[in-house]
Design a protein around this nucleic acid. Structure first.
Lengths: 221, 221
DNA sequence: AATATATTGACCAATGTGGTCATCTTTGCT
DNA sequence: AGCAAAGATGACCACATTGGTCAATATATT
């Protein structure tokens, strides 16, 4: 089958499942959106449930791909998070709804699929988040800020920024350098906030604080 | 009518509209969830559309209330944003879905209501965001950070934090001091990032930068 | 007791559902 | 060209759900 057609079907089906949940999702709407016939859909998949679980496995594979694309040699947390963000943005070009779809699984409560979903989600991504922070050099962070909180702020900023971009450019062909540059300026702001000092000039930390609140080793989560 | 019953109906209806959109939202589900009879619902409201627009107006009134509760004498941006955040959290105790409901309106595309929604949303909140920043003292901000970006980071952090709290405590009776304290620590982190200096000790700004990038007056948006 | 007001849920025509399958179209091979 | 295999189609089905009605019942007020 043409991969372009496959994408059309996958995206149409995800769209409908995200919009309506498993039970109310209409296969009629899917085939209309994907521009195929009802018969075709049920040739590829034996029933709605089958299609649903195919989509789940597909989505899981896609996000697994994030981890293999990460350059683990980059030890700077800001660069690492930026990498992840842009990998995600690229994924959303092909499958704009994977993340929404995976998120929707958590809210799904249809009796026919609930238990299987929970089983599947428990298996996968048991340590998903941790892998993103693998091999990060934490020593550069200011010692008086709790790393978790800094990371939360960083992640929320990345997410908020990405949402803003997606809302701004509905049909984004490429991510464009201006988006890249704008993210860079956010990155620099947060760097200037969370790092001890950049070029030795800005935000120098007093000696007294250097060791006072250092309850974190330099390789801590 | 008992106000408790009214709330039950409003919340049940909003829940269903958020979940399914206008067209697919089932009045049967609403009455089941609100524990009233079908007949009652259609005594209060002439039809689904009527109910829908009642909910919209109700939601708009509720968020309008935010603005009257803001203490405009508080000129510190961090305290102002914190105020707004906690006002919102309190609203969500009574109507957990108002914000989701209003958000869902933007994605609504049912032909019967689309034009009226757009009309209604255009009328209201034409300058919603700006009012939040009324009378803020911008002079305390570091001059080398663009205020918009600082405000975006602050807002994204507030939103992310609120989501985290809501996810953490599903049935939250009161907001609890520990939540308040944790937000306070985020607030302090960002203050130490964005303000010139707190007690004259941390993050002193070099004189050269003082005026270099000052393209913003002290009362700018 | 009698009137007025709320509330109910069985009921309706209409629409939509997931899924089937005989029929038609395209493809690849000789 | 001819033919068979594989793919695509949409009318069709039994059934479920829809928004909305209304005679009947329950509750409140006089």
């Amino acid at each position: 089958m043409k991969p372009e057609k496959q994408e059309r079907i996958i995206n149409a089906a995800m769209k409908e499942f995200v919009k309506s949940g498993f039970e109310k999702a209409s296969t009629n709407e899917m085939v209309k959106d994907a521009q195929i016939s009802k018969g075709s859909l049920f040739n590829y998949f034996t029933n709605k449930k089958d299609l649903y679980f195919f989509l789940i496995k597909n989505a899981v594979n896609i996000i697994e791909q994030i981890y293999v694309e990460i350059d683990m040699n980059e030890r700077d947390i800001f660069e690492r998070i930026s990498q992840v963000g842009f990998i995600k943005l690229n994924i959303q070009k092909k499958y704009p709804l994977v993340f929404d779809f995976l998120k929707s699984l958590l809210e799904e409560d249809a009796q026919d699929v609930k238990s299987e979903i929970n089983q599947l989600l428990a298996t996968i991504q048991k340590d998903g988040f941790k892998r993103i922070y693998e091999n990060i050099d934490w020593s550069k962070l200011r010692k008086d800020i709790e790393p978790e909180k800094a990371m939360n702020i960083l992640n929320w900023t990345m997410t908020g920024f990405a949402e803003l971009q997606i809302a701004k450019i509905k049909s984004f062909e490429d991510i464009g350098t201006e988006v890249f540059n704008e993210w860079d300026s956010y990155k620099e702001i947060l760097k200037s906030c969370f790092y001890r000092s950049l070029t030795g000039s800005k935000t120098p930390l007093q000696d007294s604080e250097e060791s006072k609140d250092d309850k974190w080793g330099s390789n801590c989560p």
